[in-house]
Design a protein around this nucleic acid. Structure first.
Length: 121
RNA sequence: GUGGAAGACCGGAUGGUCGCUCGGUGUCUCUAGACAUCGAGAGGAAAGUCCGGACUCCAUGGGCAGGGCGCUGGAUAACGUCCAGGCGGAGCAAUCCGACACCAGCACCACAGAAAUCAAACCGCCGAUGGCCAUGGCGAUGGGAUCUCAUCUGGUCGCUACGGCUCAGGUAAGGGUGAAACGGUGGGGUAAGAGCCCACCGCGGUGGUGGUGACAUCACCGGCAGGGUAAGCGUCGCCCGGAGCAAGGCCAAAUAGGAAGACAUGCGCAGGCUCUACGCUUUGCAGGGGGCCUGUGCGCCGACUGGCCCGGUCGAGGUCUUCGGGUAGGUCGCUUGAGGUUCGAGGCAACUUGAAUCCCAGAGAAAUGAUCACCCAAGCAAAAGAGGGAAACUUCUUUGCGGGACAGAAUCCGGCUUAUAGGUCUUCCGUCCAC
RNA sequence: GUCCCCAUCGUCUAGCCUGGCCUAGGACAUUGCCCUUUCAAGGCAGUAACACGGGUUCAAAUCCCGUUGGGGACA
């Protein structure tokens, strides 16, 4: 909704309206490290929102979870199928998990929801 | 060597790759970005939001209410903070801790105890003095016996030493209760006792000396002034207008008047009585404050003056509160400041000041991340080598494992409090050994 | 971010302002017994709490300070 964010191709969901849309209509998948919601939207590039509640921990742990998942999204943005809105709810075990385990769980979840571009294979 | 006390500081380092935010410069597009390059990018507590300010808006005439602080002097923009000192307490000491002003009025002090604040007296002690009793003694009186004087004997009355009663009365030393019971110890004194008297200590008053002051100390006087709680109401002194950057300004967008409820009992003044630690013209009130009683006045249309009242202003018709409905975007505020570093000066210190120099985060569901390499502090394990030692053991080097806590700026400062792995340095105290 | 409020049995609460008879009262729930052929209802009895740590006081659920955990308001 912010014009500043509309101009460049933002890969993150920021508007509260879009987040509520995905949260109510999206398909849900759950792993030991995070929960994932996906919904087909109109706009061309797929966007991802990361939601960390207050119950997750103090400010240091909340920021760390958001940074780790933001990095995951950046590394896989070119493989994402277009037109989707995603929501990620990290769990506390994700902070203890190593990087390779996180990448594997993320990839397999995306495959199960058929969110990857076909040309990636 | 060992056990402590206080203070200051650090709080992983370096490099590569992929990324994020801001700023400068350049180019291209063209007014919004893209690319390239350079620079910068979390803390000692950023935290809790407990104090104090700056800043912004509202209010700004007076009074009351309300809140905070509380030994003294200083520092500071200010403070509940800091420094220096006084007093009290803890500790052998270095040192640490202290809401550390005031009990006049109102209120409370459960249980226990005789009694919880005007003082009184349950057990106990005494009963000198007064009262009652009276073995004994003395005196008076009259009777009887023996041979006259005289002696003996029992009776009545009065007084009384010793004594008894503990009646009047005296006493608060002792007992017991309690957190707390109208100074403590010792001696004299007394019927028993008691500051009744004396010495020392404590306490109060006056004066001197030292100190800016809190206070200390000395001398004299007073025989003792009369419980606790003010982190209960309160009094005294000092300070404080209210809200908070989601403050507030501008631009853009959106909505168009919905529903329910409430709308009269208080305040001031004067006089009298009483208490008073405050005040003073200094000893009793012409003041201030508290409590009680009596009389009287004003208001009982409304709103604003951001707690209330007066005063002021506005309006003559609704006003206020709550719920509901709409928009939830941008931009300024936004980081140069009671700023940092170095050197110098003043001050015991907190701190102040002069010069030079530096620019040191500004995000916006919220940037500092991910990964790799190589080092580093503490720790653990085992082996080898070297050194010291009689031994227990210990120091250094090499290798392996392991390995960094509490915690993330959000308008900005000064503090406090709380969390914090590990480490470094300085100063001081106690104790042991050697010289 | 800024500013407020709260914490009492398993749950909802009273007591806090004005400290003491608080060994903390009540309701629902729960446990045992009685009643009933049995269940329910009723009766009797029981278990069960002052968020935590300091301070003031003779004495703290109550007063003061700090910590922890909840809840709320705003443009």
């Amino acid at each position: 909704m912010r014009p500043k964010a509309q101009g460049r191709d933002d890969i993150f969901l920021r508007s509260n309206r879009d987040i509520q849309l995905v949260k109510h209509h999206g398909r849900r998948i759950s792993t030991a490290l995070f929960n994932l919601l996906a919904y087909r939207m109109d706009e061309a590039p797929s966007r991802v929102g990361i939601i960390v509640g207050k119950r997750f921990g103090n400010a240091v742990r909340r920021n760390r979870a958001k940074r780790i998942f933001r990095e995951l999204v950046r590394q896989s943005r070119s493989d994402l199928a277009p037109g989707r809105g995603l929501l990620v709810f990290p769990k506390r075990d994700a902070l203890q998990q190593s990087r390779d385990g996180l990448v594997q769980a993320w990839r397999s979840s995306l495959e199960r929801l058929e969110l990857l571009r076909p040309r990636a294979y």
